[in-house]
């Protein structure tokens, strides 16, 4: 089964998303900020990254940009998962290389659907 890296600064969120994905059968890795996430990506090479936007230090889009800069990680799709819900936010996130955009709060079904769509 595919390996997914989940990045969020809030532990509660991290646990919730991990639970959703694990129950859907994915292998889940976690990180609490962008820097840690980069290290994890280098170590374990996940198939997809689900990241929060607003995090202290390196944000989710910074992480996305860094992944897109590196030819080894350029093909890893990034799903942004945030409470920000404006058109301009979506536009900006898409420009930064985000493949899909999920607005918090969301159901398990929603995130699984999005991840499936992106994986295809």
């Amino acid at each position: 089964m595919s390996k997914i890296l989940v990045v969020d600064d809030l532990k509660s969120e991290l646990d919730l998303i991990s639970a959703y994905l694990t129950s859907a059968g994915y292998t889940v890795e976690t990180a609490t900020d962008g820097k840690q996430a980069l290290e994890k990506v280098a170590d374990s090479k996940p198939d997809l990254v689900v990241t929060d936007w607003m995090m202290p230090g390196m944000g989710g889009l910074y992480l996305c940009r860094q992944l897109k800069k590196n030819p080894e990680t350029i093909d890893i799709p990034v799903v942004a998962c945030t409470a920000k819900n404006r058109d301009v936010d979506r536009m900006w996130a898409t420009k930064q290389g985000v493949k899909a955009y999920i607005v918090k709060p969301f159901t398990q079904e929603e995130i699984i659907n999005v991840i499936k769509q992106v994986m295809e």
């Binding site: 936007w53 607003m54 995090m55 944000g59 910074y62 409470a83 900006w92 930064q96």
Partner: peptide
Amino acid sequence: LTSMEMSTIADLCN
């Protein structure tokens, strides 16, 4: 990136 409104611009600046 703490502000809901400004974090997009903050990200651009970053």
